[in-house]
């Protein structure tokens, strides 16, 4: 009985280690470099590593501020938008003196809720992408990703930080 319990405990510890190992190559890349990733770096990595049904294109930072209703925002941001009729997008916002993580997260959640409301009317089949959208909050960054594979996006984004 005691031997069995010890074996089970050992197996549990192994599983815990596997969980900490998530993120693979991306995680290793992030830790290998000392320089913090820029918003554009983060967006590029998400774009390269996640599946999108739509064609995404980089949009001006001013578009991101307008879409996310971030008046007076001066931080580092990157924004990729879909060119067709889907809600897919990548938005990365680093904090500035007027916009902390909480404010940026609120803006992201408002954006997703509004999109759900809009797409419920005219393209309801796109709504699940929004309902499972990734909104990641880090120490000084908020990342939004709406894609065809939000689970992979979630893992990838977490692996970057």
């Amino acid at each position: 009985m005691k031997k069995t319990a010890c074996l089970l405990l050992a197996a549990m510890f192994l599983f815990l280690f596997f969980g900490c190992g998530k993120g693979g190559a991306d995680s290793a890349d992030a830790t290998a470099s000392d320089a913090p990733l820029t918003a554009r770096d983060i967006a590029d990595r998400i774009f390269a590593g996640v599946k999108f049904d739509d064609t995404l294109t980089a949009a001006p930072e001013s578009s991101a501020m307008s879409v996310y209703r971030l008046t007076g925002y001066t931080g580092d941001c990157a924004y990729f938008v879909s060119t067709m009729a889907t809600p897919e997008e990548i938005a990365v916002f680093k904090t500035d003196e007027n916009h902390d993580v909480a404010k940026l997260k609120d803006a992201a959640q408002n954006r997703i809720e509004l999109q759900i409301d809009n797409y419920s009317s005219y393209a309801p089949k796109e709504v699940p992408k929004l309902e499972n959208a990734v909104i990641y909050t880090g120490e000084d960054v908020v990342v939004v990703c709406v894609s065809a594979d939000n689970k992979t996006a979630d893992s990838l984004i977490k692996g970057l930080f």
Partner: peptide, 21 residues
Amino acid sequence: FSGAEKRVLSQRPELSLGSAL
């Protein structure tokens, strides 16, 4: 899909160690 509610319905989820944890 629910035509009455005009929305996509959730499908059977896949079990994985990560999603369980």
